[in-house]
């Protein structure tokens, strides 16, 4: 039985490339609408609030709180089994954005809802995925 063991990279859209360029430079960018001032995640072609195409980017502080998490020990795709255990989380950025990520540099049993975390970028296939670690962990 043959499984595709290639680690997936983000399947981007033209309007999200700036986000991934930002991560390469160690920046977590958030799309903003210059007309209605909405902060937009995930990045869109047009503002989902007012349909304006007048969009820009701001750099997030990279600080967030864990909204919820789940640590995987088994039954993930074969391409991820070598990374077990790992923790997937939803984190709420200071800017009011929620994103999916991984929590790293921390024992799974120490992870808590509302834990303060900060962004750190990890390379995979030329992309730098925004992961998060407990604040102050250098």
């Amino acid at each position: 039985m043959e499984f595709d063991m290639t680690k997936p990279v983000p399947e981007t859209q033209p309007w999200s490339e700036k986000f991934w360029e930002g991560t390469k430079q160690g920046k977590l960018l958030i799309q903003v609408c210059k007309d209605c001032k909405s902060k937009i995640f995930y990045p869109r072609k047009f503002c989902p609030e007012c349909w304006s195409g007048n969009l820009d980017w701001i750099e997030a502080s990279g600080k967030a709180k864990i909204f919820t998490f789940s640590t995987a020990y088994d039954m993930v795709e074969p391409k991820f089994t070598d990374e077990l255990p790992y923790t997937i989380a939803y984190v709420d950025l200071e800017e009011g954005i929620r994103m999916m990520t991984r929590i790293i540099e921390c024992k799974p049993e120490d992870i808590r809802i509302d834990m303060e975390v900060e962004v750190v970028f990890q390379e995979r296939g030329g992309y730098f995925l925004p992961y998060f670690r407990p604040v102050g962990k250098k």
């Binding site: 999916m100 995979r124 992309y127």
Partner: peptide, 26 residues
């Protein structure tokens, strides 16, 4: 599962359910 914003992190349906359940239990 979103192929840009979720899949690359290694999520699964089981994990999505775990995320919801952990928050509910909290």
């Amino acid at each position: 599962v979103d192929l840009q914003w979720e899949y690359p992190y290694g999520t699964t349906y089981n994990i999505i359910m775990g995320l919801m359940a952990n928050r509910y239990m909290h």
